[in-house]
Simulated scan of single mutants.
Amino acid sequence: MKIDTHQHFWKLDRGDYGWLTPDLAPLYRDFLPSDLKPLLDSAGIEGCIAVQAADTEAETEFLLSLADTHDWIVGVVGWVDLEKETAPESIARLTEHPKLVGLRPMIQDIPDDRWMLLDELRPAIEAMRAHNLTFDALVMPRHLPHLLTFLEKYDGLRVVVDHCAKPEIRDNGFEPWASLMAQVAQSASVFCKLSGLVTEAGANWTTPDLQPYVSHVYEIFGSDRVMFGSDWPVINLASDYPQWREVFSSLVQDQPIQETLGAGVAAKAYPRLG
């Protein structure tokens, strides 16, 4: 099975997507499984992992309900307020659903860049460990020093870095991103998603603009810890699904693409998968 490890669904009338405004015209409508399935089929991808886009447990339950009715949605990365005293109970309740594979706090939108280091998070993080969930790190380059401390604090916790930590490609921001990511990759329990790069590269991006970043990710993580993700429908801000699938293939032509696309790496990153 080939898997897209990072995409989103949403319904505007649910009302909990605070970041989603009419200014984001390509995204300001409903995106549901019926919209994605033809794109997956045409790309030769048989399954996907739906990732939260709202900071509510209700949205997590919405995604899990979609996974109940579409067997090709093989996993869900949801959201829980990890600071709340009741977070461990929420995690235990949500993991009663077999398709919950991970949780993702929206770190990029939190004012405190050191938020992930708060001691108040420890009970929730330990509950994630106990329930075999993976921590999706929605971080940017400025968060990487703190992510390194986080990895030391929770040694062995499985972490997936979303969108390669959003390198500043449009500004040729290879360093210090590259050096910091190399340090992050030294932890064997950390994985990386090749996703979201075109939206970081600006309106006039080209495939060569992306190549140094993709090559570096493969060099430091190895093909057994890198996963394909579309970031659909957010990718529509700068590209579309068919184009990204084609560009991805050209970017990784010297790598074992079947491993990156395959369920094997995803199953190591998300052991509850399947």
Results as ranks from 00 to 15, higher is better:
residue 33 P to K: 11
residue 180 L to W: 08
residue 60 T to I: 09
residue 250 S to P: 11
residue 22 P to L: 04
residue 267 A to Q: 07
residue 206 T to W: 05
residue 107 I to A: 13
residue 104 R to I: 06
residue 4 D to K: 11
residue 195 S to V: 05
residue 150 F to Y: 12
residue 261 L to K: 02
residue 144 L to N: 01
residue 139 V to N: 03
residue 4 D to Q: 08
residue 79 W to P: 12
residue 77 V to Y: 04
residue 186 Q to D: 09
residue 208 P to E: 04
residue 155 D to C: 09
residue 236 N to T: 09
residue 62 F to C: 08
residue 243 Q to S: 12
residue 33 P to W: 09
residue 247 V to F: 02
residue 118 L to H: 15
residue 181 M to T: 13
residue 265 V to H: 00
residue 73 I to C: 07
residue 157 L to H: 05
residue 261 L to T: 01
residue 241 Y to W: 03
residue 272 R to E: 00
residue 110 I to G: 04
residue 103 L to E: 07
residue 209 D to L: 09
residue 181 M to N: 11
residue 142 R to G: 02
residue 206 T to M: 06
residue 12 L to W: 10
residue 118 L to Y: 15
residue 223 S to K: 02
residue 253 Q to L: 14
residue 130 A to K: 15
residue 13 D to R: 15
residue 262 G to P: 06
residue 77 V to L: 02
residue 75 G to A: 04
residue 162 D to K: 05
residue 49 I to N: 00
residue 258 Q to T: 11
residue 251 L to P: 11
residue 188 A to I: 07
residue 177 W to A: 00
residue 69 T to P: 10
residue 167 P to N: 02
residue 108 Q to R: 15
residue 207 T to A: 12
residue 144 L to V: 11
residue 196 G to W: 01
residue 81 D to W: 15
residue 207 T to I: 13
residue 81 D to E: 13
residue 242 P to N: 02
residue 184 V to H: 06
residue 206 T to V: 07
residue 260 T to P: 00
residue 86 T to Y: 14
residue 103 L to Y: 12
residue 230 S to C: 04
residue 268 K to D: 00
residue 233 P to M: 07
residue 174 F to K: 08
residue 68 D to W: 12
residue 73 I to Y: 06
residue 194 L to I: 07
residue 121 L to A: 04
residue 94 L to V: 06
residue 34 S to W: 15
residue 151 L to K: 14
residue 262 G to Q: 03
residue 119 D to V: 13
residue 90 S to Q: 13
residue 26 P to A: 07
residue 222 G to H: 01
residue 103 L to R: 14
residue 49 I to M: 01
residue 93 R to P: 13
residue 217 V to F: 04
residue 242 P to D: 01
residue 127 A to L: 15
residue 88 P to L: 10
residue 64 L to D: 02
residue 180 L to E: 04
residue 73 I to S: 04
residue 11 K to W: 08
residue 152 E to D: 15
